[in-house]
């Protein structure tokens, strides 16, 4: 079963993906690593940020790895690289 989620790209990830948000179709049951892979396959330049982002699903941090996710249609996925300007 797949479902459509909303991916939000912040800071550097929006620049590298060249988009600020988009709806993508992903498997409802997936791991955080698979979800990240799915996003990177759409925007290969994001691969450089792998260890330098917060990945959040429904405004909750998930570590990119084996963590199991049960996604619902419309869920919000956020890619958040830190910014350092001031």
């Amino acid at each position: 079963m797949s479902c459509e989620v909303l991916v939000l790209y912040f800071a550097k990830s929006a620049e590298l993906a060249d988009v600020r948000s988009e709806r993508i179709c992903v498997a409802q049951q997936t791991t955080s690593q698979q979800l990240w892979q799915e996003i990177v396959s759409r925007h290969p330049r994001l691969a450089a940020l792998r260890d330098h982002v917060i990945l959040a699903v429904c405004q909750e941090y998930v570590s990119i790895g084996d963590q199991l996710l049960l996604l619902q249609p419309g869920d919000e996925v956020a890619i958040i690289p830190p910014i350092s300007g001031g």
Binding site: K12, E15, A48, L49, D51, H52, I54, P81, P82, I83, S84, G85, G86
Partner: peptide
């Protein structure tokens, strides 16, 4: 805890380049 490894320098944007 959140960012154990610093980002590669070339992926960091400053205010002069990126604007604010």
């Amino acid at each position: 805890c959140l960012f154990p490894v610093p980002p590669p320098a070339e992926t960091v944007t400053n205010c002069a380049d990126g604007g604010v």
